[in-house]
């Protein structure tokens, strides 16, 4: 570990496979990463890049079959979560590791009141009495900025707006003071002005409560504003990982570079023509034996088709990239 602090969560060579009628889908291929206390790790990738499946694999949220977390280690709090019993997992899930999902409408139960759903983890995990749990629920709603909290405990999810529902989700995730919070595209379903509110809220809560956060998104803009460190995923693998500023200032992987260029900006100069990443993302029917980006890559050469690149360090800032092409020595000539 380059930084002194011991990681709260460490994942080594994680593999997740789905068995389907068409064959095996290798959704997560040897993913390794760590999360330091209080850190916000951004995970960026397109749909099918394996970012959500990786995080759901961590706490056994994938139905098995078809999913099988087939290999690797997930070290958290002295346990290997991959091999831990369902009972241990249940104690950790929702208590030590909180989860926020993309769509607050489908992840809240429509037939229970918000109060019931907030109090459930408090009573189950922390053993609070009904009255104590209710007080704590009010505290939590106030913490996430829902005005007039006590009477709102009796409301059902549909009585809240999208932004407010996401606040409720955050309150539930925070209920038991988790060490790690995993947020899977928490603002994707929201409008930009509401997204700005939620991002501001998470920044605030992080300062107040000091938990480590994994923030999954496809929006590079959101990541730039909040992440300490960013991990870029493609084809079920981590292709690049670096501190946020370093990644945006000095991207190494051709995919990261192309991704940063395809996104038009609202501020600054306007590009007359959008850069395009030609082709389609890979279909993961086999474990990768070559670089999965090579078909769409402007710098691909013979070795990329013969061998899957391993992550190698770039400089001394904790920046690493899984690519044979080296921007520094093999030229900057971008396509």
């Amino acid at each position: 570990m380059p930084d002194g602090a011991l990681p709260v969560l460490e994942v080594k060579d994680l593999k997740t496979v789905f068995r389907t009628r068409g064959g095996q889908v290798h959704a997560v291929n040897s993913v390794s990463f760590h999360l330091r206390p209080g850190e916000l790790l951004g995970v960026v990738g397109e749909s099918g890049s394996g970012k959500s499946v990786t995080m759901m694999s961590l706490i056994g949220l994938l139905p098995s079959p078809p999913a099988n977390v087939s290999d690797g280690q997930i070290l958290f709090d002295g346990h290997d979560l991959r091999t831990a019993s369902e009972e241990t997992l249940r104690k950790i899930r929702g208590a030590r590791i909180g989860f926020i999902f993309q769509d607050p409408m489908t992840s809240l139960n429509p037939v229970f009141t918000v109060g019931f759903q907030l109090m459930e983890p408090l009573r189950k995990h922390m053993g609070l009495s009904k009255a104590r749990a209710r007080d704590r629920a009010v505290e939590l709603l106030e913490l996430v900025g829902i005005p007039d909290a006590r009477p709102r405990l009796k409301d059902y999810p549909h009585q809240f707006s999208g932004g407010m529902r996401q606040r409720v989700m955050i309150a539930i995730a925070l209920a038991c003071d988790p060490k790690v919070l995993i947020a899977d595209e928490p603002t994707t379903a929201l409008d930009v002005t509401i997204q700005a509110q939620i991002i501001e809220l998470v920044k605030e809560l992080r300062e107040k409560l000091g938990m480590a956060i994994v923030w999954i998104t496809h929006d590079l803009g959101v990541i730039a504003g909040i992440a300490d460190r960013v991990m870029v995923m493609y084809g079920g693998q981590v292709v690049e990982q670096a501190p946020a500023r370093e990644l945006f200032a000095n991207p190494q992987h051709p995919y990261t570079r192309a991704l940063l260029k395809t996104v038009p900006k609202v501020h600054g100069a306007r590009e007359p023509k959008l850069n395009v990443i030609e082709g389609q993302p890979p279909i993961l029917m086999a474990a990768p034996s070559a670089c999965s980006f090579r078909d769409r890559c402007a710098h691909a050469f013979a070795r990329c088709g013969a061998e899957n690149p391993r992550r190698r360090p770039v400089g001394a800032n904790g920046h690493d990239v899984a690519c044979f092409w080296d921007a520094a020595t093999q030229g900057e000539a971008d396509a």
Binding site: V192, T193, G221, A224, G225, F248, K265
Partner: peptide, 15 residues
């Protein structure tokens, strides 16, 4: 104004 200012910019230095 508010709408434009809410759009995140993919550049940490700007952000």
């Amino acid at each position: 104004e508010a709408l434009l200012s809410a759009v995140p910019d993919p550049d940490p230095a700007v952000e």
